[in-house]
């Protein structure tokens, strides 16, 4: 069953479909939340809330067929960051902005492409990788990263820009 079929079954309150969806995406959602929060209990909380929202309001996803995986990754990251930011900024899922209109799920399922991106990310220079990690997983602003690392603000911007350019290049090969 592809994502669209699973979501349609979830909309009919088919628990086995929801279980299949859990098996497909819980690892991704949990891993991202754990990287942000660094506490397994909190990360599981976020994972449950994100996936329960799919169960309760699958309609918000049905119009975005094919991008569920990337959407969940973005939502998981944003929710986890929100927990860090005083635990009060839990934006309802249906109000979240989707990552982009392309079929990103297909991109993510393209294992060769993802392997290429993974390899590119792993071989990023250490300072680029750590800057992007601080921005993505810690939710720090460029200025905060500059203050934390002691690197000039312009350098931080260049590092993050360069890291993302590497990701994009790996996607486009």
């Amino acid at each position: 069953m592809d994502d669209a079929e699973l979501l349609e079954a979830v909309a009919r309150k088919d628990e086995s479909a929801m279980a299949a969806l859990f098996d497909r995406y819980s690892g991704l959602v949990y891993s991202i939340a754990l990287r942000v929060l660094r506490e397994p209990e909190l990360a599981e909380d976020v994972m449950q809330e994100v996936l329960l929202q799919v169960w309760r309001q699958p309609g918000g996803f049905l119009s975005q067929k094919g991008s569920l995986g990337s959407w969940l990754a973005v939502v998981s990251r944003n929710r986890a960051i929100d927990v860090i930011r005083r635990r009060a900024r839990l934006t309802p899922l249906e109000e979240m902005v989707l990552p982009e209109p392309r079929n990103l799920q297909r991109t993510i399922e393209d294992s060769r492409m993802m392997d290429r991106v993974r390899e590119a990310v792993e071989t990023l220079p250490e300072e680029q990788q750590s800057s992007l990690h601080m921005a993505y997983f810690d939710g720090l602003t460029h200025i905060e990263i500059s203050e934390r690392t002691g690197a000039p603000l312009g350098t931080v911007k260049t590092r993050i820009r360069s890291a993302l350019a590497t990701v994009r290049k790996a996607l486009q090969v």
Partner: peptide
């Protein structure tokens, strides 16, 4: 947003805590 979503998606996966599936 695409670049960042992919960056997040290629991070090394972590194992779910025991019983997470049942609790969900």
């Amino acid at each position: 947003r695409t670049d960042l979503a992919v960056f997040g998606a290629v991070q090394p996966p972590s194992s779910l805590p025991d019983g997470a599936r049942e609790r969900f």
